[in-house]
């Protein structure tokens, strides 16, 4: 029983890490840029939902607030690419890394100015209710996180494999030059990828905020999600999700079975082990070019 309950709460956390990791990987695959502001985008998405939905703020219905937050973060992601990253296109990775870290700070301070630095929780219809079955007590919020992540994964799968735009996104991430030659508007696709990453960050943020509370420094979670993305093999979407689940699962078990204080180390220990044994990550998709 205990094992099962630890598993569910681990999976719920892991889904959130996985979704943030997905944002990292999406942008990396499409543009070869690593967006270190992904965690902060998650945080801002959560705050947008709080600002639109909570009774103290605009007090919109929960689902409307969520949709607004997702659309808002898609717009933020798109504008970050359009206004900032496109201008440094072609610069070295280090430039991109420093710039996105700085953008993360900006998002954090904006959130702090608007919503304050005290933890806030997102009012939602599921808060505090439990589901019982087979003698198991599960927080509905945790179940919702898992269900929403599964649905979103399915949607993304269909989008990337069936839709014209999704296939074009895959194509331009696999071979940007060839995509150019086929008349695929690569720059517009970069913008759309950032918008998608923003929308996914908002969903991750909403899920995170329904499980607990949110404050401007919650974006630091992004570091754990980055570890998850690397564990999964940076460059593989399913890998990012699975890496997130692995990190999420490792935490409650470590907290339960290992001396207190050590459990925080586990995700990073996992990262180091994976990098030593399988540096391309657990689920990487690499294919050598035929000459």
């Amino acid at each position: 029983m205990e094992i099962l309950q630890l598993t569910v709460s681990g999976l719920a956390n892991g889904c959130i890490y996985g979704l943030i990791a997905l944002g990292f990987v999406l942008i990396y695959k499409a543009t070869e840029q690593v967006n270190f502001a992904q965690g902060d985008m998650m945080m801002l998405g959560a705050f947008l939902a709080v600002g639109l939905g909570n009774a103290d703020w605009l007090g919109m219905p929960f689902l409307v607030a969520c949709a607004g937050a997702v659309a808002g973060m898609a717009a933020v992601g798109w504008s970050m690419e359009r206004l900032v990253l496109r201008r440094i296109f072609g610069q070295s990775q280090v430039t991109v890394v420093i710039l996105t870290i700085a953008l993360g700070f900006v998002l954090r301070f904006v959130a702090g100015l608007v919503w304050g630095h005290e933890p806030l929780s997102l009012e939602n219809p599921l808060a505090g209710s439990n589901a019982r079955f087979a003698g198991l007590v599960l927080g509905l919020d945790e179940v919702a996180v898992i269900v929403v992540t599964l649905l979103l994964t399915g949607l993304l799968f269909v989008f990337f494999n069936r839709s014209r735009l999704g296939i074009a996104m895959q194509a331009s991430s696999q071979n940007q030059l060839a995509a150019y030659y086929m008349g695929i508007p690569v720059r517009r696709i970069h913008g759309l990828t950032w918008a998608l990453a923003g929308a996914i960050a908002a969903i991750a943020g909403i899920l995170f905020a329904t499980k607990g509370s949110i404050d401007p420094s919650a974006g630091l979670l992004g570091i754990k999600a980055f570890a998850a993305a690397v564990i999964g093999g940076f460059g593989s979407l399913p890998g990012a999700l699975l890496g997130g689940l692995l990190v999420g699962l490792s935490e409650p078990f470590a907290a339960r079975f290992i001396a207190a204080g050590y459990s925080q180390i586990i995700p990073y220990a996992l990262l180091i082990v994976v990098l030593l044994l399988r540096p391309q990550g657990l689920f990487s998709q690499v294919m050598g070019k035929k000459v």
Partner: peptide
């Protein structure tokens, strides 16, 4: 380039640039 493709010029680059995983 995407506009030029719609005008009817298509470039087959050297080195067989396929989309390897598709």
């Amino acid at each position: 380039p995407d506009v030029i493709v719609t005008r009817g010029v298509v470039h087959v680059p050297e080195g067989r640039e396929v989309f390897p995983l598709l």
